[in-house]
Nucleic acid binder design. Structure first.
Length: 463
RNA sequence: GUCCCUAUCGUCUAGAGGCCUAGGACAAUACCCUUUCACGGUAUGAACCCGGGUUCGAAUCCCGGUGGGGACGCCA
């Protein structure tokens, strides 16, 4: 049997980090087993679903390279099928109409809570042998409820949490179709997983409580019950539930913040899953190694520091041209012309192993593209009269030497000797003059990529 | 409140009864490297929630407590 997994977000917002990890694991499991990964959009909540959110989810998955083999399927386009199944359930007696109003249900729940009971539907419209049913009120559209087994337990061997058993007595007859006829979540999921022949349902563990209902429904439909793997939650950096203030932002925000998708992917893969002591690995390795046995069953706290570390790592590995492209995009966004200065790719090579993210890389490259204006304070402390005199000597030598690192370096050394100065006494003022900052990579390398003309031009302001 | 899940360094985790004086990684600290700032290298500190069992032996198995999380919608 070939593995078929799915990712089934509801388009009520962007793809956040928790959803991304769920998608990653479902995707990886399918890839690991040469299976099929299906994308399904659960848009039956018409009021909250938006096409923008659908697009945001698609964008997020594309950024992470989580490609699907089937779909996206849209539940709203499957209404006919749901209605068919509901009619069948009604006809077979596995479902029934219920006329209890929302207000009555609310009262029922309140009363139950007051008695310290678990709030649930009391089955007043559930047909039972020999039980008289109330007469249907006129002009009230009924909901359809699934007739849940009254006794016994529902059990499954969760692929990450182990065996879970829930007594049917804990469950109630849940609504599968609203008064307006539209089917509800738990019902659509079941029909879809069945129709799409999903073999492994990999999803967040907030669905553990839905699973017994879904299994009962599947059984009533005579459908094969898939395997379930419930992933524990991702908590925010502060150990509390993900919220907009920390973590529950769109994965595209990570792009915005200068993270590389491979860093986010690697980080997410290690959050709640492990392969011995391996910390850094490619997606190819991940697919080879991924299994459900090594998923942690407890919630994991998001750690930005570690993500930063991975991002820095992948930045060092990344191709210069690619990083130049990424940086150019960011510079352009700031109104800086990335073509205006030294060849970006060369500057990238100088800086990519010194920065933590793409925005920092853009910060570092910006002085190469624009006219720099060192602060008055920097000028006062570093571009002293003595320093300017040394820079003047250096300028002479630089205008004459050949333009490669060794020659430039020699020009620096000759200047030091001539002025009886130490390296930092010239290199730091030079950095301030050229880049507006007292720190930079090795100064001869900076000079080399900046180019002789530009170096001399920038120096002329101070000598 | 009821039900379900969960518990190893600050964080992510290794660990499937003896290999554990509990390993790795991030972070922290110190030192080294150095032309500044970084990168890098080396080293150090840091954990089995508590209480009972089971066993010759428990981080690992069982029970209870406590802490954390989730679910209890005509939301998904």
């Amino acid at each position: 049997m070939t593995v078929r997994t799915r990712f089934a977000p509801s388009p009520t917002g962007y793809l956040h980090i928790g959803g991304a990890r769920t998608a990653l694991f479902a995707w990886a499991y399918a890839r690991r087993h040469q299976g099929t990964f299906i994308l399904r959009i659960e848009d039956t909540d018409v009021a909250r679903s938006t096409p923008e959110a659908v697009q945001a989810i698609l964008d997020g998955m594309a950024w992470l390279h989580l490609d699907h083999d089937e779909g996206p399927y849209y539940q709203m386009q499957r209404m006919q099928r749901y209605k068919e199944v509901i009619a069948h359930l009604l006809a077979s007696g596995a479902a029934y109409h219920c006329y209890t109003s929302p207000k009555e249900l609310e009262q029922l729940r309140e009363a139950q809570m007051a008695r310290k009971e678990k709030p649930r539907y009391d089955g007043r419209w559930r047909p039972e042998r020999g039980k008289p049913l109330p007469s249907a009120p006129t002009g009230v559209a009924p909901v359809v409820r699934f007739r849940n087994p009254g006794e016994g337990v529902v059990a499954w061997d969760d692929l990450v949490k182990g065996r879970i058993e829930i007594a049917n007595a804990e469950l109630d007859d849940f609504i599968i179709a609203r008064a307006d006829g539209t089917p509800t979540y738990n019902f659509c999921v079941v029909v879809d997983d069945w129709d799409m022949r999903i073999t492994h349902v990999i999803r967040g563990d907030d669905h553990v409580n839905n699973t017994p209902r879904q299994i009962n429904l599947l059984k009533a439909l005579n459908a094969q019950v898939p395997q379930y793997a419930h992933l524990s939650m991702i908590l925010g950096d502060d150990g509390t539930k993900l919220s907009k203030r920390h973590g529950a932002v769109s994965v595209m925000q990570y792009d915005e913040d200068g993270y590389l998708p491979e860093a986010v992917l690697n980080y997410l893969a290690r959050l709640g899953w492990s392969h011995g002591d391996d910390e850094v690995f490619t997606m190819e390795q991940f697919i080879q190694w991924f299994d459900l046995d090594h998923i942690t069953s407890s919630a994991a706290q998001f750690n930005t520091e570690k993500l930063n570390w991975l991002n820095q790592h992948y930045l060092k590995l990344a191709d210069d041209a690619r990083l130049a492209g990424e940086t150019a995009r960011r510079l352009a966004k700031r109104g800086v012309d990335p073509e205006a200065g030294a060849p970006l790719e060369k500057v990238v090579a100088l800086y990519k192993d010194r920065v933590g993210n793409l925005n920092e890389l853009a910060d570092a490259l910006e002085p190469f593209c624009v006219h720099v204006h060192p602060s008055a304070e920097l000028i006062a402390t570093h571009l002293t009269e003595n320093a300017r005199a040394a820079l003047s000597v250096l300028r002479e030598r630089l205008s004459a030497c050949s333009w490669e690192k060794p020659a430039i370096s020699q020009a620096m050394k000759d200047t030091l000797a001539a002025c009886a100065l130490k390296m930092p006494q010239v290199a730091i003022p030079l950095r301030v003059a050229l880049l507006g900052q007292p720190q930079s990579p090795s100064i001869d390398a900076v000079l080399e990529v900046l180019g002789r003309d530009e170096v001399l031009r920038r120096l002329d302001q101070y000598v």
